[in-house]
Simulated assay, not measured.
Amino acid sequence: MSWMIYGAYGYTGELIAAYAKERGEQPVLAGRNGEKLKAVAERLDLPYLVLALDDPQKLRAALAEHDLVLHCAGPFELTAAPMIDACLATGTHYLDITGEIDVFELAHAKHEQAQQAGVVLCPGVGFDVIPTDCMAAQLKQQLPDAVALQLGFDSTSRMSRGTAKTSVRRLGEGGAVRQNGNIVAVPLAYQTRTIDFGAGEKLAMTIPWGDVSTAFYTTAIPSIEVYVPASPKLVKRLQRLNAWRWLLRFEWVKNYLQKKVEQQPAGPSERQLEEAITYVWGEARAANGKTVSQQFKVMNGYKLTSRGAVDVACFILQQQPKGGYYTPALLCGADLVERYFVDV
């Protein structure tokens, strides 16, 4: 079976390619920057193909030679649609490492088309959203009549430049939660609460994480919020920023912020990859007030992404599931996350 990693020279893409090689896989590495791509491919002794998303004919010709593509080139709001359309046209399974709500919704909207094409569409096969998606599935199993779900995570790891770029691009859109089955736009730092993610109680705020989309398809729970720790100062700063979010929607402002991000390190250091664990938390509530909650600890988010993305790719190539849209937990089971637990 032949598969491709697109965007293999980005920080996370290179981690994924290195882990695939470590596992004995031979994916074709692809991307638009030939110089950067060649450097990674030669270091890992893997085949490569220079390929741009803005040439649909060449893209489809390349994908037709592969059973699966693992898409790692963001921001996915700009890159996912052409790749998904090409995969549906060529019968190529599609995975990505997005955490962007709009991309999950786009993929879900193509469920019937994917079924007909025999193509698996499963975005979010990294830290976004494997651990929280599995948490949601496990809580649903424990409380089948849950009507509200809150998820969250606490990590001390640095963001990669790619993640940071995506985050600043979305600032102008504010936050998002799911209410009564519908995704609703809300202000930044819309809700706050105190949560013990696993290392003591912390103030936390809502963020527009991918589970606002995916956890609904995994669990059918109609109300969903996702939280991360935040200092009182940060919460107040974001709440004040809501009055100026309209300015952050201009493309020139987004480009300016992304250039500032370029000055940051590419991603977590080797030490952070090995030592910075992530606490994952979830709580489900039924209409009668009954609640269940749980916590677990997983490896650094970027390390988890490198493992999870390759694991899901290999699962599809080996098991050949039916075509359609999937979340990671629906595709591989709620226990998928247990591969990435750490004991600290």
Rank of each mutant, 00 (worst) to 15 (best):
S2R: 15
I5P: 00
I5R: 00
E14P: 00
I16P: 08
I16Q: 04
K21R: 15
E22R: 13
E25L: 13
Q26P: 05
P27L: 02
V28E: 14
A30P: 03
G31V: 06
L37S: 05
L44P: 01
L44R: 05
D45S: 12
D55R: 09
P56D: 09
Q57V: 13
Q57T: 13
K58L: 10
A61L: 11
E65A: 15
H66C: 08
L70F: 04
C72S: 05
C72H: 01
G74E: 04
G74T: 06
G74V: 05
T92N: 03
T98H: 01
G99N: 06
E100Y: 05
E100D: 07
I101S: 03
H108P: 08
A114P: 09
Q115I: 12
A117Q: 08
C122E: 05
G126K: 00
D128V: 04
D133G: 02
L139A: 09
K140Y: 11
K140A: 14
T156M: 09
T156R: 13
T156L: 12
S157P: 01
T163K: 02
T163Q: 05
T163L: 02
A164E: 03
K165H: 10
S167M: 14
R169E: 14
R169Q: 14
R170Q: 14
L171A: 06
G175F: 03
A176H: 06
Q179W: 10
N180T: 12
V184K: 10
L188K: 02
T194H: 13
D196V: 02
F197M: 02
A199I: 11
G200W: 11
G200C: 09
F216K: 10
T219L: 07
A220L: 11
S223P: 09
V226H: 04
P229H: 02
A230H: 03
K233L: 12
L247F: 13
L248S: 08
F250M: 11
W252N: 12
L257D: 08
K259P: 07
Q264T: 12
P265G: 03
A266N: 12
S269Q: 07
R271D: 12
Q272E: 15
A276H: 08
V280E: 02
E283S: 13
E283V: 11
A286E: 04
A287K: 13
N288F: 01
G289H: 04
G289V: 02
T291Y: 01
S293Q: 15
K303D: 12
L304D: 09
T305P: 06
V312Q: 00
Q318D: 13
P321W: 00
G324M: 07
Y326G: 01
P328F: 01
C332Y: 06
D335P: 06
L336V: 03
V337D: 01
V337P: 00
E338P: 08
Y340Q: 06
D343M: 10
V344F: 10
